[in-house]
């Protein structure tokens, strides 16, 4: 059954899509170099897993994951509201480390590095998404809704103000817009969707531990955003599909067993390098990051 393997990959693409388009909202459209995205994903995954393990229904823990991440996003936006560019990146990076440390050390709640095994698959209206085909359909629906909402935001007048804030914050403020509030809303919305992605991830893999939420796990998502092109949702989708599928054909090259691991990673790195050499702004990039 080749299809089962592809269904698995499509589910991963779906999860990454939600993560990447929501990161695109804060990084690409609002110009906030946000490295705290993986922390929102972590909060969502843990919130969802813990509620699911305690018997809450799917729609509650799924939305709770989103809203809790959103609260964290909002809280993060308060101390960082005056920071820009590299400074904001460092502050949000710090936030990622804090959340990681909490997940690792609050063993009473998260079981620390032992992780949470046996997370149930979602059940909705008496139907359990236990096989991967139905889970894919669920993921697809959630991706579609997330995409439409973020698309709507970006083409709305509010989205235009966000882009204006990114391009020239001072000018936007002169026009009487409260840019701090704008950035706050953008970061919180972005966090909300990251939380949903975390919830989907936890219920799909059925096991989470803090190692899934380190900075190393953020890098692929950030790669997608940059390779897809900042402020381009179309580019993000294409980049997600390419970057998730890219390592897969490498599995079929018959390397000698002694170098199979490193060889694949070297090639993967080379391909990424090539893409950036030929498309320095990404596939559909409109702007460059400060």
């Amino acid at each position: 059954m080749i299809s089962a393997y592809f269904i698995h990959l499509l589910i991963l693409i779906g999860i990454y899509l939600i993560l990447a388009i929501s990161l695109q909202l804060s990084v690409g459209f609002t110009g906030l170099l946000n490295l705290g995205h993986i922390a929102f994903y972590c909060v969502g995954a843990y919130a969802s897993a813990l509620l699911a393990l305690n018997g809450f229904p799917f729609w509650i823990y799924f939305l709770a994951a989103g809203f809790l991440a959103m609260i964290f996003g909002f809280l993060l936006s308060i101390p960082t509201k005056k920071l820009k560019g590299d400074y904001l990146a460092l502050a949000t990076l710090g936030f990622s480390f804090v959340i990681y440390a909490v997940a690792l050390n609050w063993t009473g709640l998260t079981r620390g590095p032992l992780g949470l095994p046996g997370i149930p698959r979602p059940t909705l209206f008496g139907f359990t998404f236990s096989d991967n085909v139905s889970f894919l359909i669920l993921t697809f629906i959630i991706v579609l809704i997330s995409y439409l909402i973020i698309k709507k935001i970006t083409i709305s007048p509010f989205g235009k103000v966000l882009e204006a804030t990114r391009d020239d914050e001072l000018a936007t403020r002169v026009l009487g817009k409260n840019t701090f509030k704008m950035k706050s809303i953008s970061l919180a919305t972005s966090a909300f969707f990251a939380g949903l992605a975390g919830s989907l991830y936890a219920s799909y893999i059925t096991f989470i531990d803090p190692s899934s939420f380190t900075l190393l796990q953020l890098i692929p998502v950030l790669c997608i955003v940059i390779i897809g092109g900042l402020a381009s949702l179309k580019g993000t989708i294409i980049a997600t599909i390419i970057l998730v599928l890219l390592p897969e054909p490498l599995r079929f090259i018959g390397f000698p067993s002694s170098i199979v691991g490193p060889a694949r990673q070297i090639i993967y790195g080379l391909i990424l390098l090539l893409i950036l050499v030929y498309r320095p702004k990404g596939f559909y990039g409109k702007v460059e990051l400060e």
Binding site: A4, Y5, H8, L9, L12, Y201, I205, F207, I208, D209, S211, S212, Q217, E248, R251
Partner: peptide, 11 residues
């Protein structure tokens, strides 16, 4: 990496 391992297992 858990995701990587899950992909490998499916393949």
């Amino acid at each position: 990496d858990l995701k990587e391992a899950a992909s490998a297992a499916q393949k």
